[in-house]
Write a protein that binds this DNA or RNA. Structure first.
Lengths: 231, 231
DNA sequence: ATTACTAGCTTCCGAGTAC
DNA sequence: TGTACTCGGAAGCTAGTAA
């Protein structure tokens, strides 16, 4: 895969940023060492190794050297660059949860039916949720941790409001898919004032999820939250 | 600059491409070692080190581990990515030459005045060259090497032609700047059939370069060839 | 000034193996 | 199966120094 030794990466990068792609640039080993945070001797060794491997070329220029990165050296860095890019970009923006359906306490359904939320659902999600949230108890510590950090990610944000008597907190919605597509327009809710623990996941959809996905209380269920779809 | 150890880069990249940015993914040290071309023990050590440094988080998941890259780990990779990008992109596409002006042999000027070339100059460079090329003898081995490889780069290409009697070879033109801008619309020529050595540089411009830049035979002169401006 | 050799130290890795 | 310990060797680094 990567022929080049990792230790040499910073050295080539430093040379490239000095313009050594097309020109022989004057670089002293002392100066180079300082930039890559190594000793002068290490820098010298790097240049020797890189030269022997055909990644750079050097020309005596008085006492110093002129150094240039070869095509071979350049393409090695490009290759590494591509690896990094795909690792960073392809990181699927998708958080998976697994758990068991538990009977809803009716509470979520009540809040979601309030006019102050319903009109925001309609406006921002494009539908009014089926009256009744799906409650999922997460089974693994891993998922509980992920649940706890869900709120950090960009979300569809419903403002809190007041009905004169009391105030209601904000709600963050995360588009989600149930059981690999059995329901594909659900949303996981994160409430400002949650009434559950971190091991509970509350999910809504335009239709009854239990009916659509044919699941009942106690069944295992998979929820995939889609990140990166919110502008 | 980069806190992360270079040896750990491939490990994190591998984890990220498995989706470990947002989820705890199951990875065995054996499998991981195989991907980063190290032993199982090395992979295990990497994970331990990365965990202790706060670049990844792990959760026991049965016998295996669930591994996730933390924000800290992610931003380290992003930082390295940025370094690579600027090294690759900012690599100034500019080749510098230095040499001394020598008296032209008149030959270049003759060829450049031929109708077959002149109309191509007008069309592709936007001007007809001043009758008389500037001839520069390169002073340093470094520049001679660069001169030799100049022809490999993308250029403004003038086709060869025949006048019935004899044929004339192609000419590659490279936009160039003389003495830091004294003349900024010159062009270095690389001829198919060069009449000079690799240590000679032939330059044209719409006006007399000697007059514009106030130089005479024997003077030192700097020529900067601009690459990457040719589509 | 430079570059780069040598010696010695530290880090990293792989094999064997415990759990 | 897994992970990760110890240990011996290889690789990488630094300091000193030669040229």
């Amino acid at each position: 895969m990567h022929e080049i030794k990792l230790q040499h990466i910073l050295t080539i990068v430093e040379l490239l940023s000095k313009g050594a792609r097309h020109n022989f640039v004057e670089v002293t080993t002392t100066e180079l060492g300082k930039h890559i945070d190594r000793s002068q001797q290490a820098a010298s060794k790097h240049l020797l190794d890189l030269e022997n491997s055909g990644y750079i070329e050097r020309m005596k220029k008085g006492q110093k050297f002129g150094v240039r990165v070869t095509d071979k050296g350049y393409s090695e860095i490009q290759s590494l660059f591509s690896s990094l890019r795909s690792a960073l970009e392809l990181a699927p923006a998708l958080i998976e949860f697994e758990g068991r359906v538990v009977s809803g306490m009716g509470e979520g359904a009540y809040y979601m039916s309030l006019e102050g939320y319903r009109k925001q659902f309609k406006e921002k999600l494009g539908y009014e949720p089926y009256p009744g949230t799906l409650n999922i108890r997460l089974t693994n510590q891993i998922f509980m941790n992920a649940r706890r950090e869900l709120g950090k990610h960009p979300s569809i944000f419903l403002e809190g409001f007041s009905d004169g008597t009391r105030t209601y907190g904000w709600v963050k919605c995360f588009p989600a898919v149930i059981n690999d597509g059995a329901v594909d327009n659900a949303a996981v809710l994160v409430l400002e004032r949650t009434h559950y623990d971190d091991n509970m996941l509350e999910v809504i959809a335009p239709m009854s999820i239990k009916h659509e996905a044919d699941i009942k209380n106690g069944d295992r269920v998979k929820v995939q939250v889609q990140l990166g779809q919110i502008p």
